[in-house]
Every structure is written in C-alpha cells, then in structure tokens.
C-alpha cells in the first residue's frame, strides 16, 4: 500500500476529497447525487408542464387570437437570439465539465465565465427589450392588462383580441418562471466558478459542477420549447 501519504496539505481540495463515510467510493457518491438531481429535474419538467398545458388549452379555445397576439406582442428576433445565447451557454457548460474531467481548471474557468455572461445577456434582453416595454404599455398578465389606442395605431390597424390578456398571462408566467430559473442558474454557476477557482473540481470530483450543468441544460430545454410556442407558431 503506497497510497498513504504523510500529508495531504500540499494537495488541492479536489485531490484530497473524501466521500461521506456511507458511500463505498467517490464514484458512487457522485452517481447518487446525480440521480437525486435527475429526480429534481423531473419535477422541474412537471412544473413547466402546467404552463404548457395552460398554453395548449387556451390555444385550443382561442386559436385565432393566439396567432395574432403572438405576432403582435412578441418579437421573434429577440426570442431567437436568446435561444442561440442559451444554446451557446449549454455548450460552454459541457466544456467546463470537460475541463474538470481533464484537469484543466483554466478551461473550466473560461467556459463558466462565458456561460454566466450568456445568462446575463439573456436576462438583460428579456428585461430591457421585452418586459420593460410591455410593462410601460400595460401589456401585463390578467387584470393588469389594458388596451392602448396608440399601440393599435402603431401596429398598423391591429385590433386587439378580446382574449389577448390570457395569452399575455401565459407568456408572463411561463417566461417569468423560466427567467427566475436563469437567474438562479447564474448564481449557481457563479458559485461553481468560485469553487473551481479554489481548486475544488478535478477529474475525481466535480459533482456539484456536473449537477449545476444538468440544471442549466434543463433551463435550455425548456426555452427550446417555449421559444417556438410563444414567438413563432
């Protein structure tokens, strides 16, 4: 047995990581944590399923209103750009994990920073170019919604449907909940960046980085569905 070192002080945190005593080894521990993450992500899918179901039901009840409201209130260019931003951020998270697996902390750092920037770009576009103008024009969910004559003129004769507020309610709640997830993801990624800078991630231990990555990917997947449903079709 040659692996008993006299001191672990000179090792990095990920090198001297010891799994909790009820696990056989670090691999099993990471595997268990990952399964737990997947169970949580499945509840996330079910949470958003409620919004998708509401979307489907009201689209079925008011198909015409749905198509008009989608094209009038939302700009597909912003949604499309945000889709690309999220896809890029998903790819960089993959690379960040690869950096940990191949013991290249700099690669993890850079990719996490790019991911966080992408998250911020997404939020800034969402808040500044979508939520704020809607807020100003009272294009708000439910009872806060109000029609404005000037917006009818701007739209070149678009006559608002009598159920636009339902579309906007679903838009606000679904994208709002998604936006909160992006915000939480940005904080989690920053936490991972901090841990990585302190040397906590290496080939044998990167559990929290991988699980935050999984969370980030599910946020991306939800947007992959929200974007065409709300902005395009």
């Amino acid at each position: 047995m040659t692996h008993v070192s006299t001191s672990t002080e000179d090792l990095k945190p990920h090198e001297r990581y010891v799994p909790a005593s009820h696990w056989r080894n670090a691999y099993d521990e990471a595997d268990g944590a990952k399964l737990g993450m997947w169970l949580f992500l499945s509840t996330e899918i079910l949470l958003f399923a409620g919004f998708f179901c509401a979307y489907a039901v009201f689209r079925m009840l008011y198909p015409g209103v749905w198509a008009d409201a989608s094209h009038y209130y939302l700009d597909w260019r912003i949604g499309g750009f945000n889709t690309l931003v999220l896809l890029l951020s998903s790819f960089t998270v993959v690379l960040a994990i690869r950096g940990a697996q191949t013991n290249r902390p700099a690669m993890t750092n850079i990719n996490l920073i790019i991911t966080i920037i992408c998250a911020l770009v997404f939020l800034v576009l969402k808040l500044g170019w979508e939520y704020y103008p809607k807020w100003v024009h009272d294009e708000l969910p439910g009872g806060n919604f109000a029609y404005h004559s000037h917006s009818i003129l701007e739209a070149g004769g678009y006559v608002p449907g009598s159920h636009d507020n339902i579309f906007l309610s679903i838009y606000w709640i679904a994208t709002g909940t998604h936006g909160v997830h992006v915000l939480i993801g940005a904080f989690l990624l920053t936490w991972c960046l901090w841990l990585n800078m302190k040397g906590f991630y290496g080939p044998k231990h990167y559990t929290s980085l991988e699980n935050v990555g999984l969370y980030w990917h599910i946020v991306d997947i939800i947007w992959i569905f929200l974007f065409p449903l709300l902005y395009l079709v």
Binding site: V4, S7, R16, V18, R24, N25
Partner: peptide, 16 residues
C-alpha cells in the same frame, strides 16, 4: 482523515 481516505481507496479498489 488521511487514514479514512486510505480506507476508502482500499475499499474502492477492492470492490470495483
């Protein structure tokens, strides 16, 4: 902690 780590690594190498 060092001994614990050694035990874990030993178990890991034995079992898997």
């Amino acid at each position: 902690r060092e001994e614990e780590k050694a035990i874990h690594e030993e178990l890991a190498s034995q079992e898997l």
